[in-house]
Amino acid sequence: MDLDFAQLRRLLPHGPGMVLLDRVEELEPETGLTAFKTISGGEPCYALLDGSAGIDAFAYPASLLLESFGQAAAVLWLCSTPAAERVLMFAGAKECEFTGHAYPGDTVRHVVRLEHRSEGAAFVSGHTLVGERRIASYGSLTAVVRPRSALPEPAAVASITTG
């Protein structure tokens, strides 16, 4: 099964600008998927770099790479679980290694494997490539599942401006 960006926007709970995936391919609900994100120089994470910044400054942040991979893992879980009643929350990551970088113009490819899912948690592993170059490996990401009714309503968030 493949998912386009519009489908990903509807599936993920993230607000506008926070969906860090462009498409998903080869989704098998109890096994894994492949997800893609193309990095653009116009993304908010680069907004504060001034005109003198060299290309090294545009290395895509590891934190956002991990978030993008985590969202791909969330897609895997959401496609096999009714989302209305429960919320999936990122709980931890271990044995993660970042061995390379991605830059504007690159398309990162996340390979996500479902290792185990249980009543209250899901565990995935995988890696991220640019072309055939592996830039990150994730030994284990843990997500916990909680009933939506048990969580407080999110507070209103003030808009964030830059510059």
């Binding site: 185990h116 249980s118 948690a121 843990t142 916990v144």
Partner: peptide
């Protein structure tokens, strides 16, 4: 604790 439980289950 959650990780331990998952490993036992698996």
């Amino acid at each position: 604790a959650i990780e331990m439980l998952a490993r036992i289950e698996k």
